[in-house]
Structures are given as C-alpha cells and as structure tokens.
Design a protein around this nucleic acid. Structure first.
Lengths: 242, 242
DNA sequence: CACACTTAGTTGTACAGTCCAACTTATTTA
DNA sequence: TAAATAAGTTGGACTGTACAACTAAGTGTG
C-alpha cells in the first residue's frame, strides 16, 4: 500500500539510494472569534487513495521542492493560501514523524503555529473556524493532528503566561480591557486588572492612539502595537492557578 | 548533482509521484567538561560524493525507515551510538529545511538536544567534546549546523533561567554549590547563593543522600535527583543581566 | 594548639511585582 | 439627578529575589 521513494543515487558513492520519508508542513492557525479561541481547519479531499477522506485536518501539505525555498516559506505559503494573511506571528512548533502516522508510508511533518487577528481572515471556502473549549477541540482530526493541536494549545497557553503573544491576536486598535480579555480567554482564568495593566504598560509594547472607545459607560483608551516589536518576555509568570 | 527521489505512485490517485526531500535527524549533545559547557561533534566522512568532507558536524544522519519507529527513537539511537547513553534528557529543538542547506538536494533535518552527565560519556572514536566559550563555538560546522547549535545554546540558556534543566548535566551525586556552578557556567554570570538555594530546595526536585562531600574546608551536603522528576518550571526568572 | 583561611550554609533588610480589595472617574440611561 | 456600569487608580499584604553580613565546619601553618 505505501508508496516507496528511492533516490537515483550519486554514481560512485550511491549513498542516497534508500527510501525517503514523505515531508509535509502543517499550520495551526489561531484567532479569537466570538469571545473564544478558534483554530482553522480544512476538510480532507475525498479522492481515491486519499487518507482520511473528508476528515477534518490542519491546513498543510507536501513540501514543494520547486516552489518552497525553505520550511518557513512553505508554512507562510500555506497560511496565505488559506487565509490571505501575509505577515502574522508564525512560529515553529515542532515536528512529528513516524512509520504509522500516515497510511501512505513513513512521513514527517513540520508543524508551525500562527496567530492572526480575527478580522484578517479572508478564508478559502474549504476552511472553517472551530472553537477550543476547555483547552480542547471537540472534533477528531485526521492523522496525528489532534496531538499537534494539543501541543500547540499547550505551547500557546504556556507562553501567554509570560509573553506578549496575545497581542498578535488583536485587531489594529484595541483597549487594555480587550487585551486582558484575550489573555483570559487563552488562559481560561481571570487575571488581576491592576497587575495586568502595570505589566503591559511597563513593557513598552503598545502605544496609545488619540482615540477612545466609546460605549454605554466610561470610554476606554485605544492602543496599537508598536511597530516591529518582537514578542516581549516578562520575568515572572502571572500567578499560576495553584 | 542533486539526487532526486520520486515515489512509485499510488495507481489511480498517483499523488505521491513527486520529488521528496531528504530527511535527517541531528542531535546537539551538551555536557559539562572541565568547568565549561561542551558539545559533542563528529568529523564528516571523506568518501566520494560526501558533502563537507572531514568537516566537523553534529552527530546525526538519515532517518532509517526500516529501523526507526519515529523521530525521537531515531534521535535516541544516534545519541546511544555516539555516547552509549540511553536515558538522558532529550528534547526536540526544531527543524531546519531548505533547498540549499545540503548540496545533495532539498533536505530537512529534525534537531534534538540532549543533556548528559559528563561521566556518562563512553564515546565512539570519531566523536569529541568541544568547549563553548562566550556562548559560541569557535569551530565552523558543516551544513547549517552552526545555526542549529546557536539555537540550541540560546534555548538552553533561556530555559536555565527558569527551569531545573541543569540538573540533567549533573553526576548522580552532587552538592548545591556544584549545581549552582553549572547554572553559572551555562548562564555565564554569577548567581546569588541564598536565592539559588531557596529556589532549588523548595522545588522538591532533589533529595539529600546520607553523605557529605569532604574537601579542604567545610564539608557540603550531597544530593541526588529525585526519581522520575520532570523538569521543574519556576515562576520567576533569575534576575536578568541588566 | 591557636588562628588564619576557605568554602558551606543562614539570616535579615530592602525591593520589586503580583494579589486583593476598595476606591475614584467618566459615561449612558432611567 | 441618581443609578448602573465599566475604566482606571490606589494602597496594604504577600512572595520571592538582591544584597550583604553573618555563623559553621573543616584544613593548613607558625
């Protein structure tokens, strides 16, 4: 059943004449939707010989040795194809490779995770957002994509404790309570308002714009991300649950 | 020059009939030697068609689809082949893949990093320890192994700020000043004795053995790692350099 | 055999940043 | 004008590091 790949070899040395694993890239794309953390999933094709036909899966696919200069470019290409987003937060998550994860043979995938603002999404028709509840996705995924997603959620939660990553989930302009809400959504626990504000404001990562968000009560200052900012690392975590 | 690999295809679908990248695994193996952080390197073979003949490189090589169940097993196998160590701290570092990193063609490597106690090393003759000075290796490495090593050093330093990783570099029994010294070697800066002791002792990661290390002055309590301990994450970093 | 020397280990004050709770402020709506 | 609500501030308690001085337990030397 499994397709085997053999190199043509190198003449005298001939050391490349052995089976090669399949090489893919998958992308875990997060955004905040409807006051929830969401992940973008696609449906697998139904063609003959396709593994996991019609199952849900992470967007991804084979590395195209003609098109992709490197792995990050491949991940960026797949992100752009599905969402139209070109300059998000894109970080390598890890790689998963084994003899059994793909019925077509030994395969290894390089997983990335991306954070984009909800608004940025101009999705292709095959892609849909799915909510993460209680730190988990309800749906089952193709391949080992469930493991990959679980790792991505864990990494995101972990980093949110001590970095400014949620800033990349925000629209262009946002208030401090907005940002705190996003932290709370990802961590799934409430945070202290005053400690949160002190931490964020002293990190020099956002700047106020000359506008307020108006609502049915006291207006809130609008901020935007400072340009070209790397993620900020804080020297403490928020106080962990216990 | 580059070898190309094509799958045999899958009959009707035929979707696997395209070139596959080479797949390798490399391992960055750290230990403390002679009061310095050291990394284990091997010399590339000199055969015909071999890239970077006789250059220094990280231990690693092609995934063997017959022998290796998964990537971690492949990394553990390579670690064992070079050092004889079987149960070290082994963590995935990331993956590097591009069209140009290997002259034999599009290739992707899955990099791991390992921490082992100095004493554990029963090395194969082709492997040697090299010191890391000022956070860098003096020697040039084959492929993009210099980048991979730099990333590994950075990751190690970063994690040492807030985890118990250096414990895996220690021999079976060690004193608290020994452990502090290893932290200081990796971070390349002095740490506060009392804060260090408080942190480590309250982390419940080590336990005293009924022995003292005797020397030319006051004896020091010997400790060992508690069994089956995962690395510990502290809620604060040590105070950063500036 | 006292005493200097060295390293192990402790103690106490200062300080930084979070936790917690109460407070003030700015706006809408009844 | 008062109630309601969310934004934003203030202050004391608590936790853990920074810094520095201290005590403890050995060896080596005159």
């Amino acid at each position: 059943m499994a397709g085997e790949a053999r190199a043509e070899g190198l003449g005298k040395a001939g050391q490349l004449d052995f089976p090669r694993p399949l090489t893919t890239v998958d992308v875990v794309i997060f955004a905040i939707l409807d006051d929830r953390l969401g992940v973008l999933l696609v449906q697998r094709p139904a063609g003959d010989g396709e593994p996991f036909p019609l199952s849900l899966a992470l967007p991804g696919g084979f590395v195209d040795v003609a098109k992709d200069r490197d792995l990050a470019a491949c991940a960026a290409r797949k992100l752009k194809e599905k969402t139209g987003v070109t300059s998000p937060y894109l970080e390598q998550l890890g790689s998963w490779g084994s003899a059994v994860r793909d019925p077509r043979g030994w395969s290894a995938t390089h997983a990335y995770f991306a954070l984009i603002p909800e608004e940025a999404g101009v999705l292709t028709p095959d892609a849909r957002w799915f909510p993460i509840r209680d730190g988990r996705l309800k749906e089952r995924l193709a391949f080992d994509h469930g493991d990959i997603l679980a790792t991505a959620i864990q990494r995101l939660r972990n980093k949110v404790e001590y970095t400014s990553l949620p800033a990349y989930l925000m629209p262009a302009e946002f208030t401090l309570p907005d940002l705190q809400r996003v932290y709370e959504i990802v961590l799934d626990r409430p945070l202290e308002k005053s400690a949160f504000r002190t931490r964020i404001l002293s990190a020099d990562m956002i700047e106020p714009v000359a506008k307020m968000r108006r609502g049915p009560n006291r207006p809130a200052q609008l901020y935007r991300l400072k340009k070209g900012r790397e993620p900020v690392y804080f020297v403490r975590t928020f106080n962990p649950p216990e």
